[in-house]
């Protein structure tokens, strides 16, 4: 405990285990992240990347390990000789600290673009409608969608929807942004606009965990790249190392497979 406190990183994922029934989807996953750091996670389908992100912000219960954000234990609290899982408003309060951007956008289809962005601040934080809308419009402007405030999600393109989803996450003033393959559901010509938005956020100093198959993006934006396979971290390090001269044969195979897939 004491040596952990001394080298306290902003976000600490320590020895994470996660099971779905009798299938172990994450085993002993540890990542330390400093404030402002951008981590890109790559790895084959089904390797547990999405599960990792959902565990980090406590959308799913973890079975082993600890997660700390600024030394606050996430998702559970010590109780007797063990822990209790947090739920209700306390868990919801912790989740606010993480912005989550989903592969399938998951905008609320019954709300306008602006309402999607303001519903969190109004319902969860209790902000006034006027204040939330002003801030919401600023955020939409930031992701280049100021003119779409009154549209419904079904009336805008996938790339625009994903940018609204990013604005919705930002509206809660998260301390960490989690992106789960934010461009995988997009037509190729729409990928660029979303990646550009994420890149701007990285440059603005957000702490981010980005699951992506866009190696070029990872190369440019990531401080560190983590290669994930079968629920384990296989290799991690600066993008030049992991992407250009990977050490582990599995990483080499994955990267060459992605690059030849045309």
């Amino acid at each position: 405990m004491t040596d952990q406190m001394m080298k306290s990183h902003f976000l600490r994922v320590e020895h994470l285990d996660k099971w779905y029934d009798d299938f172990q989807v994450l085993s002993d996953v540890s990542i330390d992240i400093d404030q402002g750091e951008v981590i890109c996670i790559i790895g084959p389908s089904g390797s547990g990347k999405s599960s990792l992100l959902r565990c980090v912000n406590n959308l799913e219960k973890i079975d082993g390990g600890r997660i700390y954000l600024e030394d606050e234990l996430i998702g559970m609290a010590p109780y007797k000789d063990g822990f209790v899982r947090l739920d209700g408003p306390v868990a919801a309060g912790q989740r606010q600290k993480f912005g989550f951007v989903f592969q399938q956008f998951q905008l609320f289809p019954h709300m306008t673009v602006l309402e999607n962005v303001t519903v969190g601040p109004i319902r969860v934080k209790g902000e006034s409608r006027a204040a939330a809308e002003k801030r919401g419009r600023d955020l939409l402007d930031k992701v280049g969608l100021a003119d779409r405030a009154t549209s419904y999600p079904s009336g805008i393109s996938g790339g625009q929807q994903q940018r609204v989803a990013i604005a919705r996450a930002l509206a809660m003033d998260p301390q960490v942004l989690l992106f789960d393959e934010p461009t995988s559901a997009l037509d190729p010509e729409l990928v660029g606009e979303v990646l550009k938005t994420i890149k701007d956020l990285a440059h603005a100093g957000y702490t981010m965990l980005v699951v992506t198959h866009q190696l070029e993006f990872a190369q440019k934006v990531a401080d560190r790249v983590v290669f994930f396979d079968h629920g384990k971290i296989v290799e991690s390090g600066p993008p030049e190392t992991v992407l250009k001269s990977p050490q582990d044969p599995r990483t080499q195979a994955f990267i060459s497979a992605i690059q030849t897939e045309v």
Binding site: R54, L59, D87, A92, Q104, Q106, F108, V124, R168, A169
Partner: peptide
């Protein structure tokens, strides 16, 4: 209603009841 919708609601800090009321029930 798509499970992802309640996850998205929870991800912006809604409690179970808030997500039922504002996101899941309307849909």
């Amino acid at each position: 209603v798509n499970r992802g919708q309640s996850q998205a609601a929870e991800a912006i800090g809604m409690t179970y009841w808030q997500s039922l009321r504002s996101v899941v029930f309307p849909q």
